[in-house]
Design a protein around this nucleic acid. Structure first.
Lengths: 340, 340
DNA sequence: CTGAAAGCGCTTACAG
DNA sequence: CTGAAAGCGCTTACAG
């Protein structure tokens, strides 16, 4: 039913090797032979079977990118960068949503997809240190994002503490004094928001400003709905913030929606800063001030790190796993500066 | 370097077949043998090679989903539905951004990924009829979205004309009379927005309302930026609309941003309706009224249609390709109704 | 410049 | 209940 190399070879009256040579653009083939083979290929509509190639080659050129969800625009934007960059390097990316669930994350660490992918880029939410320790000698793994682990894997992440301090400082410099943090995770010690929360705390401490627990609002996740609810709770609690620094832009957008519903003005009554610089934020009624991680640099660093481990010949990997810190920038917009 | 079935067999002192039986949960294996094999598997950290399995099986269980881009939340939401539903059916989805470029779309139609994927779901933007006519007998193909073709493939799409009429009628019923259309494509006869534009025109004609070209604003693409620019041009042109029906939510969000900058109120001065029901729209300052295609139904219909063609035994495909029309709903919100 | 053979890692008949 | 053989479709040495 499906046309194979052998079929083409028969039709062209040559061996399989010769067809393979033509298909792969091998130089030393007589023009006449090449023409005959090419004609057979066209007539039969032959397409080389990638799975067979991959098995033969011992590698597939496919890398998996496992991240919480595509619905979060940050991950969608990052994924697109990874896919495009990898494509330019001849690699295919298999996107695998984990829904931020530990069992899913563990599956990837353990090596589902073995033999199908050459390596894995994972952006974990719930994964624990012990999950990484148990890992056998599977395909190369590169970690992405705020969570920190002791395991010996390349880890790509911006300096989250510094970024959070920058965001908080921006609000302090604008004269805000009751700056809340939106998006700590409910009842967890090693929470994903750990570093950003710490940066917020450190900067406030340095400025001698309030950083009490009454100004920290927890969320179940990091969606707009979570942000809206957390903001409502914070306002109801009587904490009376004059600014909020949010775990990410989605939470910030949810928070701004609540502020609007309550008749509070952004930034006059409450200034808002997000994190991620997703495109949505730029089109809010008050364009969102945010921390912009250099997504392209992150994507490239992740792919480069993985490929380096895949092909020692091309880029010999250093002896020890590396921490790579792409840059970030504060992008001040209307949600803190007001309309020009 | 990588552990194979044979290695496990040697260590356990059995044949490859027996290991295969254990791995695949074949019933008739002595408990003792099973235990011995399992131990060898654990000790060696064996993981079956999926590529080898796929080659042997003649199918991979992988389907490609080729769509314009992940950055458009509509596609991100749809992709997530497809991935989750397919996963539940034991299928892996390979996401392939086409950037809405014809050459990319043609590649997929022609069968890049042959042997790697069992079938393809494609949401085309620029693809032409002739591109489909030339297609050989490749893997099954299912089409998705507003574009219409003469080729004999399953096509999943809501009734775009009816949906556009519903949206336009909603605005008419609210007493609006100068209803603009935002998002026709620049200088193209067979434009992607064809059906929605037609629905808008038909409904206005039926109501005897204005539907002149001065009320149609073209865009280069369907992004927020496109919407913002088109809205600005429309206002500058002096068309003075009291409502806009936008090709999609992104364009609508961009339009609302421009309206805000110009000091125009939504919906008092200009009512806005979008299309897609992406989550962003619900969190705008004026929550966006929109057409909500039933994304889950679309995703499932696409996967079901493809799987039916893949496995005639399970669901015999009908003789002729089918048009499947999932449902949609108008979701009225603040951008037309105002705040409650 | 082209061919015949071997083998990537698995599973499916076929025996026993 | 388990084994030995064949083969999925390709490419890589090895010959000629």
């Amino acid at each position: 039913m499906v046309v194979s190399l052998k079929d083409v070879a028969e039709r062209a009256g040559v061996s399989a090797k010769t067809v393979s040579n033509v298909v792969n653009g091998y130089r030393h083939v007589t023009p006449a032979t090449r023409r005959r083979v090419q004609q057979a290929i066209d007539e039969l509509g032959y397409r080389p079977n990638l799975t067979a190639r991959h098995l033969r080659a011992g590698r597939t050129g496919i890398i998996a990118l496992a991240l919480p969800e595509l619905n979060n625009p940050y991950f969608a934007e990052l994924a697109e960068e990874v896919i495009d960059y990898a494509a330019g390097l001849g690699c295919t990316v298999l996107l695998d949503p984990t829904h931020g669930r530990r069992d899913q994350e563990v599956l990837f660490v353990r090596g589902v997809r073995a033999g199908l992918i050459d390596g894995l880029i994972l952006s974990p939410i719930e994964l624990e240190n012990e999950d990484l320790a148990e890992r056998g000698s599977e395909a190369p793994l590169v970690l992405l994002g705020e969570r920190e682990y002791d395991a010996p894997y390349d880890h790509i992440a911006i300096d989250n503490v510094a970024a959070a301090r920058t965001a908080t400082r921006h609000l302090l410099e604008l004269g805000r004094r009751r700056i809340a943090f939106l998006g700590a995770r409910h009842g967890r010690t090693r929470q994903p928001a750990h570093l950003r929360l710490r940066g917020w705390r450190e900067e406030l401490a340095a400025a001698g400003a309030a950083a009490g627990d009454d100004l920290v609002a927890t969320t179940d996740g990091y969606t707009r709905a979570d942000g809206a609810r957390a903001m409502a709770r914070l306002l109801d609690s009587g904490a009376a913030p004059d600014a909020v620094f949010c775990y990410n832009d989605l939470v910030a957008i949810g928070a701004m929606r609540t502020l609007g519903e309550r008749g509070l003005r952004v930034p006059e009554d409450v200034a808002v800063v997000g994190f991620d610089d997703i495109e949505d934020g730029r089109y809010c009624a008050a364009a969102l001030t945010t921390i912009a991680p250099h997504k392209r640099a992150i994507a490239r660093a992740a792919v480069d790190a993985l490929l380096a481990r895949l092909d020692p010949a091309r880029t010999p990997p250093p002896d020890s796993p590396r921490r790579i810190r792409p840059g970030f920038a504060l992008v001040p917009r209307e949600s803190t500066l007001g309309r020009p």
